[in-house]
Write a protein that binds this DNA or RNA. Structure first.
Length: 824
DNA sequence: AGCACGCCGACT
DNA sequence: GTCGGCGTGCTC
C-alpha cells in the first residue's frame, strides 16, 4: 500500500481467465488514466489486447515481472463502476470468468485484439539458398506482397501449423513480425455538396450550363438534380448529402469530383450518427382503462415493499399501455429505463409505437445492428442521451448508471436465456440483479408466466398484478377437444386428421384465413420398426431411436446428428417388412397436401429453416399470405403474431402432455395465444382444435377454460411431486469422454458423491446419454442450486474438489466438464 | 483465448 | 530420424 513511487493498474482482459492482471501505469498516463478506460496491453509473448482498467493502486505484485500499459485508448471511461459489479456477479452466479462477461458485454468495435503481421527483414537481400521449401514459399510470397497476416500465411502454406516455419525464418533474419492493433470503431462521415457562391446569380448559372452541356453532360445532369433538389426538398441551407444527390442524378462520384475541382461545388465532410434523428415523434396521450389503472396502481403498491412485480395480463389487455405510463414516470424522475423483449418480438410494431412516444430518447439495441451501430448506442447510453432502451437480452450490458425500472416483457420466453457461449445467463434473472444494484424496480410481464415466476408471486417474493380484461371487447378463442379414440372407432379419421379438424381447416381456407398446425416432433416418423422381429434402429452413440426423414430418405439421431441412409432391410433379421411408426411434421405436411392438393402448405422446423434468413423468409411468406397452412414444431409457438390466422390445430396433445420436458404443456397455452384477439384482429374469434387420445388430461380442462393460473398451480404441484425445482436455478454438469461406459459410470459416481455433500440437491445423472459430439460422449448430472449463492458456492467447491478425484477414480486422462445453468 | 513446451505415433 | 497430433500449463 505504501510502497514505491510507481502506480499499477489491474486490467481486465477479454479472455476466459479467472484473474485480472496487474500492469505498470506509466508516469505520463497517471493523470489521465481512470478505472473503466480501455488500455492497450501486451499479454503473453506477443499478443496485444484492449483491456479495461478495474483499479489503480500502488501495491506492486510480488515475484512477477510487470509489463507496462502501452497506451490509453479512451479519454473517458467506457463503463461505470456499476458494470464491474454486475460483471462480477454474472461471472460468479453463472460460473464463468469476468473476461467472458466482458467479451459478451462490449460491442465488438470496443474489443481490440492485435493481429500479427509478417514482413520481410529490411536486411534480407533475396538470398534464398539456405531456405527450406516452406520457408522459400513464404519469402517469395512476401517479395510479392510486403505484408502478410498469419491467416494469409496459413493459406499460402496450405497448413495450419505455421509457427515452426515462422520461428526459423525469424532466426535466419528473413522476416520480422509486427503486432498491429486494429481500431474497429469508425465514426461515420457524410460528404455534403453546395453550389459555390459564384454561381448564385441566374445569369452565371445559365452560362455555366451552356458550357457543361457540350463537354460534361453528366456533370450538368448532376447540377440540374442539385438545383431541383434544393428547390423541392425541405432542407436546411444549401448543403445536400452527396450520396443522396448522386443516387437521384444517377451519377457517380467522379462527376461530383469534377464539379468540385472546377469550383462549381463546394464540399464539406461531417461526422454523423448512424441513426436518423428525424424520428417520427408524435406523442399521443392516451388514457388507461379502469382495469389498466387498477393494475398500474397495484404494481406501484407492490413496489413499495418488493422490487419485482409479476404482471399477469391476458393477450390484448394492453400491458404495453401500463409499461408506457411507468416509463414516462421514471423518465420524469430522471431515471433510465430498460425494456427487454425476446429476440423475435423486436421486429413488431412496438418499436414504432415507442419511437412515436419517446422520440430520440429511445434507443433500440439488438443483434441485427452491426458493431458500429451498437458502439454508437453504447456511447449514447454512456452519455445519457437515451433514457429508454428497448432491446434483447444483450442490452442488459449497456453502461447504465441510474436505472429506475427494468421491464421484461414475455418473461417466460426462452430466448432470454443464453445457451451457448459463456456467460450462460438468464437475462430475466440477471435483470433483477442489475436492478437491485441501482435500487431499480422490475416488472415481469406475461400472458403465460413461467412456472418459476408464478411460484415467486405466490410465495410473496414477487408482487403480483393482474389484467384479465381484454381491451376493446376482444374475444377469447374457442377451444374444441377432439377425442381421437372415438374418431378412430367411427372411422372418421383421415390419416392423422380428425373430421372436425379437416372441416375447420376447410372452413378457414374458404374464408381466406390461415391455419397453424402444431406437432412437436420433426422428421417423418419418430422411429421405424421391423414387423417381423420388432427391431427398432437406434443411434449407435445415443440411447434413442432414429427418426425417419422421408425427403432425404435418411435415419437421423435428433440428439447427436448421426445419420445414415434409410434401411432397406432389417439389420437384425434381414426382413424387408419395415413399418413406419408415429408421425412428425414432415409426415403431416406430406399427408395434408394429399387432402388439400390445391393449398400452399409449408413446414417450419429445424430441418426446413436451417438459417435465420430461411426462418425470416418463411415468416414473411406466411405474413403475405402466400402460404395458407403452416405446419411446425415448437418454433411456431414463439413470438409470432399473424393477424389472419383463425385456426390452430394441435395434432397430438398426448405427445405434448406426456413429454418428459415439463415445459411442453406450457407451450399449449402459448399456442392458444396465437389465435387470441389482438389489436389487428378485432371482433374476430379464433379457434383451437386439440386432438387427443385421452380427454382426461387435467391440462385440457385448463386449456378449455383459459385458466392459465390454474394450470400453473397444477404444474407447480406436479413438479414438486417429481422433486423437480420449480424456481431454483440449476447447474448442469456435462461430462465428456471418449468412452461411453466410462462416461456414464463417472456421471453416476459423481452424482453419488455430490449427493453425500448436498443430498437433496442432486437430481442424479440424466438419462439417456446425450450423444457423441466431436468424438466425445456426453452425460449430464443435474444439480439444483438454492436461490441463495451459499448453496451454489458449496456445490461449486465440491465439483472442483471432485474434479481431481474423478480423474483418478475414472482412470482416464481427461474429463471435460461444463457447468451450465437452468437446463429447462 | 493464444502460445510454448513436451510427449508419442506415422511418415517425407 | 522428424513432422505434426494434442495434452498441459502459463500469461502481470
Amino acid at each position: 500500500m505504501f510502497g514505491g513511487e510507481e502506480f499499477f493498474a489491474d486490467v481486465l482482459l477479454p479472455l476466459a481467465i479467472s484473474k485480472s492482471y496487474t500492469f505498470l501505469l506509466p508516469e505520463e498516463l497517471r493523470e489521465s488514466a481512470l478505472p473503466g478506460m480501455r488500455v492497450e496491453v501486451q499479454f503473453g509473448k506477443k499478443k496485444i489486447y484492449a483491456g479495461i482498467i478495474k483499479q489503480i493502486h500502488r501495491a506492486a505484485p510480488k515475484n512477477v515481472k510487470i509489463k507496462p500499459i502501452l497506451s490509453l485508448l479512451d479519454e473517458k471511461p467506457v463503463v461505470h463502476n456499476l458494470q464491474f459489479k454486475f460483471w462480477e456477479w454474472i461471472a460468479d452466479y453463472y460460473v464463468c470468468t469476468e473476461g467472458e462477461v466482458m467479451e459478451a458485454a462490449l460491442p465488438a468495435a470496443l474489443k481490440l485484439e492485435s493481429e500479427t503481421e509478417v514482413l520481410l527483414h529490411p536486411e534480407f537481400h533475396h538470398d534464398y539458398t539456405d531456405l527450406s521449401d516452406k520457408e522459400y514459399v513464404i519469402a517469395e510470397a512476401l517479395a510479392l506482397q510486403p505484408v502478410l497476416s498469419i491467416g494469409e500465411i496459413k493459406k499460402v502454406l496450405h497448413s495450419n501449423s505455421v509457427y515452426p516455419v515462422i520461428q526459423s525464418l525469424l532466426k535466419k533474419n528473413v522476416i520480422i513480425l509486427k503486432e498491429k492493433l486494429i481500431e474497429r470503431y469508425k465514426p461515420k462521415f457524410e460528404t455534403y455538396l453546395k453550389l459555390a457562391v459564384d454561381y448564385s446569380s441566374e445569369e452565371k448559372l445559365h452560362s455555366l450550363m451552356g458550357q457543361l452541356e457540350k463537354r460534361a453532360p453528366k456533370q450538368l445532369a448532376l447540377l440540374l438534380s442539385y438545383l431541383h433538389f434544393t428547390k423541392t426538398e425541405n432542407h436546411k441551407g444549401d448543403w445536400i448529402v452527396k450520396n443522396a444527390l448522386l443516387k437521384k442524378a444517377n451519377a457517380s462520384s467522379p462527376h461530383a469530383e469534377g464539379l468540385v475541382s472546377k469550383k462549381i461545388f463546394e464540399t464539406k465532410t461531417v461526422q454523423v450518427g448512424r441513426f436518423a434523428d428525424d424520428i417520427n415523434f408524435d406523442p399521443q396521450n392516451f388514457e388507461l382503462t379502469a382495469a389498466q389503472k387498477i393494475a398500474l396502481d397495484e404494481t406501484k403498491k407492490n413496489w413499495e415493499e418488493k422490487s419485482v412485480t409479476l404482471l399477469f395480463g391476458v393477450t390484448g389487455s394492453g400491458k404495453t399501455n401500463i409499461y408506457i405510463k411507468l416509463i414516462e414516470e421514471k423518465i420524469a424522475e430522471g431515471k433510465q429505463v430498460l425494456y427487454l423483449l425476446p429476440e423475435i418480438a423486436l421486429t413488431s410494431q412496438i418499436t414504432v409505437r415507442l419511437q412515436k412516444i419517446f422520440g430520440n430518447k429511445l434507443g433500440i439495441y439488438h443483434s441485427k445492428f452491426n458493431a458500429q451501430e451498437r458502439t454508437e448506442i453504447w456511447n449514447k447510453v454512456l452519455q445519457k442521451e437515451y433514457s429508454v432502451i428497448l432491446g434483447t437480452r444483450s442490452s442488459l450490458f449497456l453502461p447504465y448508471e441510474n436505472l429506475g425500472l427494468v421491464i421484461v416483457d414475455e418473461e417466460q420466453d426462452s430466448s432470454f436465456k443464453q445457451q451457448d457461449p459463456a456467460p450462460r445467463y438468464q437475462a430475466r434473472d440477471a435483470a433483477i440483479y442489475l436492478a437491485h444494484l441501482t435500487s431499480a424496480k422490475v416488472l415481469l410481464g406475461s400472458a403465460t408466466p413461467s412456472a418459476e415466476s408464478y411460484h415467486h408471486s405466490i410465495t410473496g417474493k414477487y408482487g403480483y398484478a393482474e389484467l384479465n380484461e381484454r381491451f376493446g371487447g376482444l374475444q377469447l378463442p374457442s377451444i374444441e377437444i377432439v377425442d381421437l379414440k372415438e374418431q378412430q372407432k367411427n372411422l372418421s379419421m383421415q390419416s392423422h386428421f380428425s373430421e372436425p379438424l379437416i372441416e375447420n381447416i376447410r372452413e378457414a381456407l374458404n374464408k381466406k384465413e390461415q391455419v397453424i398446425l402444431f406437432q412437436n416432433r420433426r422428421g417423418f416418423a419418430p422411429f421405424i420398426e421391423c414387423a417381423t422381429c420388432g427391431e427398432v434402429p437406434q443411434c449407435p452413440h445415443c440411447d434413442v431411436n432414429l427418426t425417419y426423414h422421408k425427403f432425404e430418405n435418411e435415419l437421423r439421431c435428433h440428439y447427436c446428428g448421426y445419420k445414415r441412409s434409410m434401411d432397406k432391410v432389417c439389420k437384425a433379421c434381414g426382413s424387408t417388412n419395415l413399418r413406419i411408426q408415429g408421425f412428425g411434421t414432415e409426415k403431416i405436411e406430406d399427408e395434408l397436401s394429399l387432402i388439400f392438393p390445391e393449398v400452399k402448405i409449408a413446414r417450419m422446423d429445424v430441418d426446413s429453416v436451417r438459417t435465420k434468413q430461411g426462418h425470416n423468409r418463411l415468416i414473411s411468406e406466411f405474413e403475405k399470405q402466400n402460404i395458407q397452412i403452416l405446419v411446425g414444431t415448437q418454433m411456431v409457438t414463439k413470438g409470432l403474431d399473424f393477424d389472419n390466422v383463425s385456426l390452430v390445430g394441435i395434432l397430438s396433445a398426448d405427445q405434448l402432455i406426456n413429454h418428459p420436458d415439463f415445459r411442453s404443456a406450457e407451450r399449449a397455452f402459448q399456442l392458444m395465444e396465437q389465435v387470441s384477439g389482438r389489436a389487428g384482429r378485432k371482433n374476430k374469434q379464433g379457434k383451437v382444435i386439440i386432438q387427443s387420445l385421452s380427454t382426461k388430461y387435467l391440462v385440457l380442462q385448463f386449456l378449455q377454460n383459459h385458466d392459465v393460473r390454474g394450470f400453473l398451480q397444477a404444474e407447480l404441484q406436479e413438479r414438486e411431486r417429481f422433486f423437480y425445482p420449480p424456481f431454483t436455478r440449476v447447474i448442469q454438469i456435462t461430462l465428456k469422454h471418449k468412452d461411453k461406459k466410462t462416461c456414464a459410470d463417472t456421471a453416476h459416481w459423481m452424482a453419488e458423491r455430490l449427493k453425500k455433500i448436498e443430498a437433496k440437491q442432486i437430481l442424479g445423472p440424466v438419462e439417456p446419454i446425450v450423444g457423441k459430439i466431436k468424438n466425445l460422449y456426453n452425460q449430464q448430472v443435474i444439480v439444483k442450486g438454492g436461490t441463495g449463492t451459499q448453496m451454489l458456492q458449496r456445490i461449486k467447491q465440491s465439483i472442483l474438489l471432485l474434479q481431481n478425484e474423478m480423474q483418478e477414480h475414472a482412470g482416464f486422462r481427461q474429463v471435460h466438464w461444463v457447468i451450465d445453468t437452468d437446463p429447462n
